[in-house]
């Protein structure tokens, strides 16, 4: 059995999770503080992938980043970057598609922290950044772990978006979920079963680890 799709899937999930952590923490922090029309719109956009059919999202990303026109053409000409049918494209699509899984738990946890924690830190002369890194983030660890695992696990299982923007190029965009579909189409059920079992096992171990870790915090891992 070719393990490349598994490695590719793990690489994609890892990169997506790290990128979303970097983007998600400050954006979720900003969203958690107060409300404004811009924030409502941004939150709606971030939440869209939860309810939008993946193929629709993939279709629009395919159009947006097509090297024939618009942004895709500009990226191709200016930076020689092509997002369509490439691993970069998969990573970009995954970041967009998995964004609510990272943002949701972090934003919710930050909103639940008493505002007096930040105020206490400010009164000690600490900057917003010091307060964020030393007080707020350490106190949302369970939710942060939940967000990381959900994002990683969700990226492992992506299919529609990945297929639309990445296609099925072995070694480049053929991730495990596509390999399963491909094997079934070729009536190769044993290979499909092997890929599925590996994905199932990884996801199960990840989710059960979060439940065990968060059990000691008396908090539902899905909060």
């Amino acid at each position: 059995m070719d393990l490349t799709p598994i490695w590719l899937t793990l690489k994609l999930a890892g990169i997506t999770t790290v990128l979303l952590l970097i983007i998600g923490l400050p954006v979720a922090w900003w969203l958690s503080k107060g409300r404004s029309f811009i924030k409502v719109i941004l939150e709606a956009i971030i939440t869209m992938p939860l309810v939008l059919p993946p193929s629709v999202l993939g279709f629009y990303l395919l159009l947006a980043f097509s090297p024939e026109h618009g942004v895709g053409k500009w990226l191709q000409q200016a930076f020689n970057i092509q997002f369509v049918f490439s691993f970069q494209g998969l990573a970009l699509a995954s970041v967009i598609y998995s964004m609510p899984f990272m943002m949701g738990p972090i934003k919710s946890a930050l909103q639940q922290l008493p505002v007096s924690l930040s105020q206490a830190s400010y009164s000690l002369g600490k900057s917003k950044w010091q307060t964020f890194t030393k007080v707020l983030v350490p106190n949302i660890k369970p939710s942060l772990l939940t967000a990381i695992v959900l994002t990683f696990a969700h990226t492992l299982g992506e299919f529609g978006v990945v297929l639309m923007i990445g296609g099925n190029i072995p070694g480049v965009t053929r991730v495990a979920s596509i390999a399963v579909y491909d094997s079934v189409e070729q009536m190769d059920y044993s290979t499909a079963n092997a890929y599925s079992l590996i994905l199932f096992s990884i996801t199960f171990i990840l989710v059960i680890s979060v439940f065990i870790f968060n059990k000691y915090r008396l908090k539902s891992p899905l909060e």
Partner: peptide, 15 residues
């Protein structure tokens, strides 16, 4: 301002 503040709910840092 760096005014010392003792909060009614203490606002201690759980971590």
């Amino acid at each position: 301002r760096k005014a010392g503040f003792v909060f009614q709910d203490y606002a201690l840092f759980p971590n």
